[in-house]
Simulated scan of single mutants.
Amino acid sequence: MRWTVVAVMLCVLAGCSGSTDPEPASSAPATSKSPKPKPTPKPSAAAPTGEPAPEALSAFRCEPTKKSTWVAAGLLANDSKKAVTYQVSVYVGPLDSTSREVRTVQVANVEAGGSVRFKLTKVPADGEECHVQVIRIKVG
């Protein structure tokens, strides 16, 4: 009885025309579930707006943790005459064209002649090569 009701409902929903051609029987009931698409990685790093500043970085360390993530830390030194903000992005994995998650932190208003330590935790890893990018964003 249930299959008759389902067949009638499908016929009504599909707008059956009363054709005499028999439909091939299916051994499994039709499902309306379609495979879910894989989510695309969300960009976690803001687009760099400034100038590269690798010389501002020192004492950089990037190491794996026990939980399949990495931790990165270092020191940023501002040798300019004005306060600046630095954007530090860390990525662990190969350098190829595949889009992967990057961890980013902005270290705001580092005083002229000053230095600040930073630390990024839970950096996702897709390999064992650690890459860092430092961007100087001018303030004032």
Results as ranks from 00 to 15, higher is better:
1 M>E: 00
2 R>L: 10
2 R>Q: 08
4 T>F: 09
6 V>I: 15
8 V>N: 01
9 M>I: 10
9 M>H: 09
11 C>H: 13
13 L>R: 10
15 G>M: 02
15 G>C: 01
16 C>K: 04
18 G>R: 07
25 A>P: 13
25 A>V: 09
33 K>L: 10
34 S>R: 08
37 P>F: 09
38 K>C: 06
39 P>E: 15
40 T>C: 11
40 T>N: 14
42 K>C: 12
48 P>S: 13
51 E>K: 08
52 P>I: 07
53 A>L: 02
54 P>G: 03
58 S>I: 12
59 A>N: 10
59 A>Q: 13
61 R>Q: 15
61 R>L: 11
63 E>D: 15
63 E>C: 15
65 T>Y: 01
73 A>N: 10
75 L>E: 01
77 A>P: 01
82 K>H: 13
84 V>T: 05
86 Y>W: 00
90 V>S: 00
102 V>W: 03
103 R>N: 08
104 T>P: 06
105 V>C: 05
106 Q>F: 12
107 V>G: 06
110 V>G: 06
112 A>F: 01
114 G>L: 12
116 V>G: 10
116 V>L: 14
120 L>H: 08
121 T>K: 14
122 K>F: 07
123 V>Q: 09
123 V>R: 04
123 V>Y: 03
130 C>F: 06
131 H>K: 11
137 I>C: 13
138 K>Y: 08
139 V>W: 10
140 G>C: 09
140 G>P: 09
